[in-house]
Design a protein around this nucleic acid. Structure first.
Length: 650
RNA sequence: GCUGCAGUAGCUCAGUGGUAGAGCGCGUCAUUGGUAAUGACGAGGUCGGGAGUUCAAUUCUCCCUUGCAGCACCA
C-alpha cells in the first residue's frame, strides 16, 4: 500500500497509508478534535470524515466552529432525519428529494393525506428521538443497477426516476442514518446527534410539483429552518416576526395608502396618502427621464388583437390577456381587442409613424404605461404582483453600434435612480434565450453577445439566469428583495432584434436605404406598484421626507393654540411642504402616538408657549427628544428636506 | 392554474347546531392637556356568496369567490 502526504491548513504535513479516512487523521491529531469533528475538506472538496483518502491532499477538519460547513451539514442531515421520521410515522409515504436552502431545508413527499400542522409537531418530536439515538451516518457506493433494483424493491418510484435521469453511468452514493437510507451526494455529519435538537423547527407545508414541472404530480413539501443552536434559531424566528411588521400590505393599511377588494382582484385602489407617494415618484421619474434624453408618449389601452398577433404576444400570452370583445348584440360591429398588456408594440407604432432617419437615433421613447395582465390567481401578491399596473416603460430605437453605449448609459441611469431611492445594492441577472422564442439562432447569438458585452463594459458581471429571457430577446434583470428576502425583478433592460422585424420598423440610413433599428426595452422601477411595495418594506414605512405622503402634522396642545396651528400649516403649505393640522380635542400624547404610528416624519406641537413666541416644538419620527424652533427656521429646513434628490443636486 | 390553510364589526381576533362577543377605531358629552392611548355613554355585523342536510345553519356538506404560504407562471 502506498504512502500519501496530508497537508494541514497550518502547512504541516503528515504521512499516512493510502485509504486513510478523515476521521483517522482527526484522531491522529487529537482525540478531542476527533470528537468535535463533523466533516473535512480534501483539496477543497467538502467530504464525509468516513471517506478514504487515496492520494496526497490538502486537508482540513471541520467542526461546528466552521459556519458554512456546519450549517450545510446540519440542514442537510435535518432533511434526511425528517424524511426518516416521516417514513417511520407513515411507512407508505414516498420520498423524493430534500435539498438545503437559505436558512434551512425542505423535503418533498408523496402522500395521499395532506400533512397537517399537528403532523409537523409529531414529526419534529420524532426527529428529536432520532437525534437522541446518536445513530451513525454511513456511506456506501453502489452501481446503478443495484441502486435501481433496491428502489424498485422498496417501491420508491421517484428515486428510480431520479437515478434513471442522472446522465452518465458513474456509481451512486447511498447514505444511511441508522437503518434509514437515501440516495444522496453527501456529505453528512458523523452521527445524528451532531444535529442540535433545539436548533431546528419545521415551518410549513406547501404543494410543489415533482421536478418543478406543472405537468407532473404535486407533492407535499415540508419546509424547516435549522441553525447551530437555540439562540440562532430564536434570532431567526425573531427576525421573521420583525419582517412581518414591515409587510407592505400591513403598512399600506396602517398608513392608509391603498386597499384592494374582491371586485377587482389584483388591482389597487390608491388612497390619497398612497397616491401622493405614487405621483411624487412619477414626477421624479419624469424629470430624470427628461434629463436622460427621453421623449414621453402615451398610447391606447384597448387595442385590436391584430397588433398583438403581429407582435407575437397573442400567440404566447393570449391566456394572460384581458380580452375585450365587442359584438353585434351590444354594438353594431364585431371586434376582438385586448387590454394593453405591455407597451412595446404601441411604441413601435409611434416610431413607424412618418419616416425616421439615422439622425433620429438613438430615439429614447418613454411612457408611464398602464398595463393589464390576467395573471394566474396564485401569482397575485399585495401590490407587488398585480393585474393592473403602470410601468415606467421606455424603448430605445437605435443602431447595432449604439447598443453598447446605450446600455452603459442606461445602467448608469438606473443606478442613479436606485441610489436616490435608497437602494445602493441590487442584484443584476442576465437571462438568455428561452426554449420558446421568436427569431433565429443567429439573431439570438448577436443579441446575447451585444447585451453581455455591453453589460461587462459597464463594469458589471451579472449572475447568469439561463433560459429566462423574453421571447424576443435576452434581458438584464435588476432585482430587489422584500422584507423577508424574496426576490422581485424591478428594473429590466432587453435587447430586441425581433419585434422591429415583426412590426416592420425601419429608418433611412446614411446610404439612403432602409434599415432595421434595434429596440432596447427598459424599465427602471419596473412598475410603480411593485417598486412602492418594495420601498415601503425596505423603509419599514418610514419613507424619506421627500416621499412621505404626510410630511408634517402640526398638533395643538390646547384649543387656544388652534389658530396658530392653522397659521403654521398655511406657512408650510406655502413652502410646498405637505403639512396638516391636528386640532382635535385630544391630548398631545394621543396625537403623538397616533401620528408616530402613522409614520409621519415630523410632528410640530404648539401650545401656549409656542403661540406667544411664534415657535414650534419639533419631534422627529423615531426620536424622543424635542427641539424648539422658530417658524422661519423650521420652514427653511423642511423646505430643503422636501426637495427630491435630483432637485437637491441642481 | 396547482396543493394546503383561512374569510365573524373599519382593524386585530374570540365564539356557538337555537339568528353573536372583546379590545382598538368611530360618534356624542365631559375634560384644555406639554410629547406613544383621559373618562363616560352610544352607534355599528343578512358571521365572503350560493345551494344542500336539519324543526333550526354563522356553526355540518358541496360549489363559487377572495386572501395567505409554497409551487408553476411573470411579455
Amino acid at each position: 500500500m502506498s504512502e500519501i502526504t496530508i497537508t494541514l491548513p497550518d502547512g504541516n504535513s503528515r504521512k499516512y497509508a493510502a485509504g486513510v479516512t478523515g476521521m483517522d487523521v482527526a484522531k491522529d491529531i487529537s482525540t478531542s478534535l476527533a470528537k468535535k469533528a463533523i466533516s473535512c475538506s480534501v483539496n477543497g472538496e467538502h467530504r464525509d470524515l468516513s471517506r478514504e483518502i487515496e492520494a496526497d491532499a490538502a486537508f482540513a477538519i471541520h467542526t461546528m466552529q466552521d459556519d458554512a460547513q456546519a450549517l450545510e451539514l446540519i440542514r442537510h442531515d435535518c432533511a434526511h432525519i425528517m424524511a426518516r421520521a416521516v417514513q417511520e410515522l407513515w411507512p407508505d409515504v414516498k420520498v423524493t428529494i430534500g435539498p438545503v436552502i437559505k436558512n434551512g431545508w425542505y423535503y418533498d413527499f408523496d402522500r395521499e393525506e395532506p400533512f397537517s400542522t399537528e403532523d409537523l409537531v409529531v414529526i419534529e418530536k420524532k426527529m428529536r428521538e432520532i437525534i437522541n439515538k446518536k445513530d451513525p451516518v454511513r456511506r456506501e457506493v453502489w452501481d446503478r443497477a443495484r441502486a435501481l433494483q433496491f428502489y424498485r424493491d422498496n417501491n420508491e418510484p421517484y428515486k428510480v426516476e431520479l437515478i434513471e435521469s442522472i446522465p452518465g453511468d458513474e456509481d451512486l452514493s447511498m447514505y444511511w442514518h441508522g437503518d434509514w437510507q437515501d440516495l444522496c451526494r453527501g456529505p453528512h455529519l458523523v452521527h445524528t446527534a451532531q444535529v442540535p435538537g433545539d436548533g431546528f423547527k419545521l415551518m410549513s407545508v406547501a404543494g410543489a410539483y415533482w421536478r418543478g414541472d406543472s405537468d407532473n404530480a404535486m407533492l407535499q413539501r415540508i419546509y424547516g429552518v435549522a441553525f447551530k443552536n437555540k439562540n440562532d434559531l430564536k434570532a431567526h424566528l425573531n427576525m421573521l416576526e420583525e419582517a412581518a411588521k414591515r409587510d407592505h400590505r400591513k403598512l399600506g393599511r396602517e398608513m392608509d395608502l391603498f386597499h384592494m377588494q374582491e371586485e377587482a382582484p389584483g388591482q389597487v385602489f390608491w388612497h390619497p396618502n398612497g397616491w401622493r407617494i405614487y405621483t411624487t415618484l412619477q414626477d421624479y421619474m419624469r424629470r430624470m427621464q427628461t434629463k436622460g434624453g427621453y421623449v414621453e408618449v402615451n398610447t391606447p389601452q384597448v387595442v385590436d388583437r391584430k397588433l398583438w398577433e403581429a407582435s407575437g404576444h397573442w400567440e404566447k400570452y393570449q391566456e394572460n390577456m384581458f380580452i375585450v370583445e365587442v359584438d353585434e348584440e351590444h354594438a353594431r360591429e364585431k371586434a376582438v381587442n385586448a387590454l394593453k398588456p405591455m407597451n412595446c408594440p404601441c411604441h413601435v407604432q409611434i416610431f413607424n409613424h412618418g419616416l425616421k432617419s439615422y439622425r433620429d437615433l438613438p430615439l429614447r421613447m418613454a411612457e408611464f404605461g398602464s398595463c393589464n395582465r390576467y395573471e394566474p390567481s396564485g401569482a397575485l401578491h399585495g401590490i407587488m404582483r398585480v393585474r393592473g399596473f403602470t410601468q415606467d416603460d421606455g424603448h430605445i430605437f437605435c443602431t447595432e453600434d449604439q447598443i453598447e453605449s446605450e446600455t452603459k448609459t442606461y445602467i448608469n441611469f438606473l443606478s442613479e435612480v436606485y441610489r436616490d431611492l435608497g437602494f445602493e445594492e441590487f442584484k443584476i441577472k442576465f437571462s438568455d434565450r428561452p426554449e420558446k422564442r421568436s427569431g433565429s439562432d443567429e439573431v439570438w447569438d448577436k443579441a446575447e453577445a451585444a447585451l453581455l458585452s455591453a453589460t461587462r463594459a459597464a463594469g458589471i458581471e451579472p449572475e447568469m439566469n439561463h433560459g429566462e429571457g423574453a421571447f424576443y430577446g435576452p434581458k438584464l434583470e435588476f432585482v430587489l428583495t422584500d422584507a423577508i428576502g424574496r426576490d422581485w425583478q424591478c428594473g429590466t433592460h432587453q435587447v430586441d432584434f425581433v419585434l422591429p422585424e415583426r412590426l416592420d420598423a425601419s429608418y433611412v440610413g446614411q446610404d439612403g436605404n432602409k434599415h432595421r433599428p434595434v429596440m432596447l426595452h427598459r424599465a427602471t422601477l419596473g412598475s410603480f406598484e411593485r417598486f412602492i411595495g418594495i420601498m415601503i418594506e425596505s423603509h419599514a414605512g418610514k419613507l424619506p421626507f421627500w416621499l412621505a405622503p404626510r410630511q408634517v402634522v402640526v398638533a395643538s396642545i390646547v384649543t387656544d393654540a388652534n389658530d396658530f396651528c392653522l397659521d403654521v400649516v398655511e406657512a408650510l403649505n406655502a413652502a410646498g411642504i405637505r403639512a396638516e393640522a391636528d386640532i382635535r380635542n385630544e391630548k398631545i400624547n394621543y396625537k403623538v402616538r397616533e401620528h408616530s404610528l402613522g409614520k409621519v416624519p415630523v410632528i410640530l406641537a404648539v401650545g401656549k408657549k409656542e403661540v406667544e413666541d411664534r415657535t414650534v416644538t419639533v419631534r422627529r419620527l423615531g426620536e424622543k427628544k424635542t427641539v424648539v424652533m422658530s417658524l422661519d427656521e423650521i420652514t427653511a429646513e423642511l423646505f430643503q428636506a422636501a426637495l427630491p434628490p435630483d432637485m437637491l443636486r441642481n
